[in-house]
Structures are given as structure tokens and as C-alpha cells.
Design a protein around this nucleic acid. Structure first.
Lengths: 334, 334
DNA sequence: GGAGAATCCGTAAACGTTTTCGAGTATAGT
DNA sequence: ACTATACTCGAAAACGTTTACGGATTCTCC
């Protein structure tokens, strides 16, 4: 079963196959009359040009590699949805890869994606070392990180203002009367989130505390395990509030609290970060810092496409503003 | 900046580029000595073969198209994660497309994916008509549906046993003493789910009821909107239990109930379907029917790869068993 | 030592496009 | 009517691989 090619169409239309190519790709140099005739034939036959072959000569695949730690994380999947939609509007398709929160796997899929000759890569780095490890490829292919600037690296990125996010959050907790606040989650992957928290603590003369685990994932289960470890280590917690580094962590923490009988917010207040859809569920009602998903997604892909179109452009950064959304997981102390 | 090609490697290794190709693709016909020499050079130079060019001649892209209504839906993203992982192990990459629950968009991306010359397509159909609309392509490219058999169509599919799922669920509700159960959600996309419910109703002489909306999505928001419509139309509900067609719908319904002051499970019991991670959240504790995600994912991709390797194989079906997971959203009546 | 087999490798065609270059034809201007 | 110009189109090269075919070298065995 042979493939239908441009040559077959040419034969039917009684023109050279160069003409067919021109007609299809919309370049000038073919009369309107023959163009529409060719288009009609393609329609009838059901012919669509072969992207592969086209890419070989144009050097452009119209493919974007998307590397995420774990697509099942709602933050990632929400972003992925918007990214795919927006990229699609610009004629790009998405190749999805999970790094499974492993630096090694991240490197692997990155190289694989380069071998696939994607036009550019959008990456949610899995850890602080991602940038260092990937640095050597950054002049070979357009890359934009969806992440805060971890270390001083030269790369394009879009991110929410994590420092501002936790600053706002910590201020909020302080304004509610909290003086003993625990930061709960990995500091490595969100350095600035921790620092925003730390800065406000310092500002008010509070002692910053943190609890983190050696694990490298972000999920309900991870938050739960972490929390259980925390509870095991300390029979009673000296904190009045916990600021979780992500909503997923917070949700896991919530589950653990429920299990050991800690009431939210009566016994302890809780603040999250991300505002995933499930944080707004009734009875959960997690107060949190919202990331502007859609904005971030569109910024990321348009930044990447810019870089693809103008590789000489150097690096750009885009830092979006977070927003406090208060629900009912934080209590006013008096 | 020219690309490094197989010819450059050949020049350095002082062999013909055919030899390099053989060395890399692991086919016999090249001595171990030269092979390892070539491999070493590639390693040093950092050369990786161009998949595009390779695909042109081999007629195989090692690409799988994945069409989902909406990747931000946790059922989809959980499946997508497992699918990507499993496909990766077999050397396949994933091209992700959202049909945005639109039949038209679904057709578009399907055709686009065919133009991309993916080796096969994995599709979560957006509606009951998907199969009919896509039927004409089914002999052109290996496709497996992740969905129950909607209408008698000739295609491969893997699905959970939806009929059994809602049967178990309805039996459970009945055993708890419920005699007025509402089925809440689209019947079109999960025909068998409704029928399983209906069958058990008939079995016990219960009147089946359903409430569905014209919308074609599945999300918290959709469930919420639907529920609000329902409440607006009926000032008081004559049901003691609601069986939601998906957990997402159930969660939206939950939210709406909270808002209008209906308590779960005291005022009304609620059962979901899917068992997404958020159903197990404290305070939510939605009882539901669990789909075996991982099994379904692996079954789907191995079925698709089978079909890619043996196009003459015809169609296969795989129907996995669901499982009732009881939490605390259903109350025993007395 | 010589014939045949086995092994290793090079040549070249093929995959389906885009695009440069040039040829041919129609149109316009003087 | 003749040249200049614009327009339309065809021939062919190029993209980076794989692979069928055949040539050369080595090995094996009598």
C-alpha cells in the first residue's frame, strides 16, 4: 500500500510536483486558478503533505518538546493543557515527556527530544541542578524554563514571582497573628519561595523554620509521607501555621493531619501555593497563593516561539505576579 | 551552523557513512572493532542520528499520537503519565493533543496526527459519535480507543467494565437501603455506565432516574454548573443517593451541595466513578468505583504497539475490572 | 596453495518534500 | 512591433538517513 505523495497529485493535476508544493504551502508563484484546482484534488484524494519530509528540507519540525516531572500533577497538567492549546494555535505540536523527577531521566529525554529535532524545548525543571546539567545544550536548541531562576544561569524562563508569593502569604499569616510558622516542602526546587518566607520572618523578627524531605517529587502522597515523618519525629508541634511549598504538599499534609487528629484551621493554620482546582473543594478550602496558569502558559510558549524564530535574540525573562486567595484554612489568632 | 551528520562521523572514522549507519542501528555487517570505534566517536562528538531522516526511509516514526479531551482532567493526566512511561520503555514518544471535548477539534487533530505520520493513535473519544466520524481512517492507521464500545464499531479498545462498575455501585447503594437513586452525568459518552445502573434498578424494581446536561466536558466546574441547574429546577430532591458518572462530576456536585446546604452523606449519599486521587482527600472521602489506571494504560499501549507491528491482526478488546472503594460519602439508611 | 564461503564494507538509490534557478509565455509600455 | 517586465511553472539539487547489491578481503578446509 503505497503512500500518496505530492507526485501523485502532480500527475493528476498535470503539473510538476514543484507546483503542487507551492500551491499547498501557500507561497506565491502559482496562479490562483491552478492553485485552487490542485487544492480541490488534494481534498478529494485526501492527501496531506508529509511533515517529516517537509521538515528535512525546511529544518523546522513545528514540534515543541515539553518536559515535566510528572504530568499527573494538576499544576503540570493544567499548564500542559494551556501550553498545548496555545502552541496549537501557532501550528506547533507537543511532544510530552515525564522526567519522573529524576535528573538522569530529565537529561535522557532532553537528548532524545534533541534527536527528534524538535524546534524548541519547554521544561519544568525537576531540581535545582537541572540548569547546570542542561547548560551545555542551551546554545544548541531554544529552551525556556518554566521555573524561577535557580542559580545564576543564562537561560530564558517564565515564572511566577515566588519570592513575592511567599512574602504575601507570610505577611497574611503574620497579620492573622501567627508568630510560629513552619515552611513545609523542598527548598531546593523553589529557593525563592523559601526566601520570601524567610525574608518576612526576618522582617518581623520571627524565627524561620522549615521541614523538608529527601524525596524529589511533589504529590499528595509525598506531602502525606513527609507529614507523617514530621509527626513521628515531633510529638507535639510548636507551630500555629504551616506554609506548604505547593498545594499538592498541603493536601497531603491535610490528609495526615486528619489522620492524627489535628484540626485545620482550629489547631493549626495552613497555607498552600499554586491554587490547583482541588484546593477549592468544599471542606478543603485551602487558602493559597495562586499562579496565573494561563498567562504563564502563553508567556512560555510565545517566548519559546520567539526564540525559535530569532535564535540570536539572547535570553528573556518573564516574572508574573501571584495572588493570595483566602479561603478558610487559616485562622485569626487572638 | 551546520548539523553534524552521519557523514561527518564517517569522515572522522574513515569509513563510509553506510558503515556508520550500520554501527549505530545495531544491524550485523560491521566488525565489533569498527563498531565500537564509531560508537566512541559519536559519543565524543555528541552525535545523535536524525529521527526524521531515519523515519523517511524506515516508514516508522516511533511516535504515538495521544488524543484526550482535556489533559487537565486528573483521570486523563494519570492515564497519560502511565502511557508515556510505558510507551517510552518501548522506544515510543508521545504527541499530545487535546480535543477540548469537541468532535470537530478531535477530527482535526486526528488528521494532523496522521499528517505527522505517527505510527499509531491512542484516543480517549470525546463523545459517542467519535467512532463513527473516525471510522474512515481506521484502516489507514492503527488506532486504539480507550473507551467502552459505543455503538457496534470495529476497532480495538481497552476499557474498564463500565456496566459492571455501575452495577456494583448501584448494588452497594441498594444494600445500604437506597431506593431512590439519581444517575448524574452524561449518558452518551458512558452508555454502559448508565445501563449498569439501570439494570440494577430494574432488578430491584426501582425507577431509574437521570439528570444530564448538554455540555460535553467532564470537570469540577461542569459538575458544579450541572448541579446548580438541577437545584434550580427542583426545589427539593426526592433522591436519597446520587450516582455521579465521574469523580470530577461528583466533586463539582459536592461543591454545589455545600453551597446550597445539602450535607453529604447525611442528607444525600454520593457515589463517584474513576477514583481520582482527590476523591480520597480528608473531608471529601468520596466512595467511588476505581478504574485500574496502570493496567489500562499498559494494556492500551501494548495493544497499540501490537497493532503497529502486526497491522493485519484485526481488532482486539480488553475489558478490565473495576473495584468498589468505599469511603464515607454514602450513608446506611434504616 | 587454491577454491569456496564468510565477513566486512562501500556505492548508490530511495524516502517525500522545499526551493533555487532558469525557461517559457503572456502582458505592458513606448 | 519590439523590448522590458511580470508571471507561471518545470528540472533538479538538497535534506540525513537506511538498505539492497556487489566488491574486496580474509578465513576455512582439503
Amino acid at each position: 500500500m503505497k503512500n500518496i505523495t505530492i507526485k501523485d497529485i502532480a500527475k493528476i493535476a498535470n503539473v510538476s510536483y514543484a507546483t503542487v508544493s507551492r500551491a499547498l504551502s501557500g507561497v506565491p508563484g502559482v496562479s490562483d486558478e491552478t492553485r485552487s484546482r490542485i487544492l480541490k484534488i488534494c481534498e478529494e484524494i485526501g492527501y496531506t503533505p508529509d511533515y517529516m519530509a517537509r521538515s528535512m528540507v525546511t529544518k523546522s519540525t513545528k514540534l515543541i518538546g515539553l518536559i515535566v516531572p510528572d504530568i499527573s500533577n494538576p499544576f503540570m497538567s493544567e499548564m500542559a493543557f494551556n501550553i498545548e492549546q496555545f502552541a496549537g494555535e501557532s501550528g506547533y505540536h507537543i511532544m510530552l515527556c515525564n522526567s519522573v523527577s529524576s535528573l538522569e531521566q530529565e537529561q535522557n529525554v532532553f537528548k532524545l527530544l534533541m534527536g527528534r529535532k524538535v524546534d524548541g524545548i519547554l521544561i519544568f525543571p525537576t531540581g535545582a541542578q537541572s540548569h547546570k546539567l542542561l547548560e551545555k545544550y542551551l546554545d544548541k536548541i531554544p529552551v525556556v524554563f518554566v521555573s524561577e531562576n535557580l542559580g545564576s544561569f543564562h537561560a530564558s524562563y517564565v515564572t511566577v514571582d515566588n519570592f513575592q508569593g511567599t512574602s504575601i502569604g507570610t505577611e497574611y499569616l503574620y497579620s492573622l497573628g501567627h508568630r510560629n510558622i513552619l515552611y513545609f516542602g523542598r527548598r531546593a526546587s523553589h529557593k525563592l519561595r523559601y526566601e520570601g518566607y524567610e525574608a518576612i520572618c526576618k522582617k518581623y523578627g520571627l524565627e524561620p523554620h522549615f521541614y523538608e524531605s529527601p524525596y524529589h517529587t511533589d504529590s499528595i502522597k509525598h506531602g502525606y509521607d513527609m507529614a507523617m515523618d514530621l509527626f513521628k519525629a515531633n510529638s507535639s508541634l510548636p507551630y500555629t501555621a504551616i506554609f506548604a511549598s505547593t498545594d499538592s504538599n498541603a493536601l497531603g499534609l491535610l490528609k495526615a493531619c486528619e489522620e492524627v487528629g489535628i484540626r485545620i484551621p482550629e489547631d493549626i493554620s495552613m497555607l498552600g501555593f499554586d491554587n490547583i482546582p482541588y484546593s477549592g473543594l468544599p471542606k478543603i478550602m485551602l487558602s493559597t497563593i495562586e499562579q496565573p496558569y494561563k498567562l504563564m502558559a502563553t508567556a512560555a510558549v510565545s517566548m519559546l516561539i520567539d526564540k525559535i524564530d530569532n535564535p540570536e535574540f539572547g535570553y528573556s525573562h518573564k516574572i508574573l505576579s501571584p495572588k493570595l486567595v483566602v479561603r478558610s484554612s487559616c485562622q485569626k489568632l487572638d
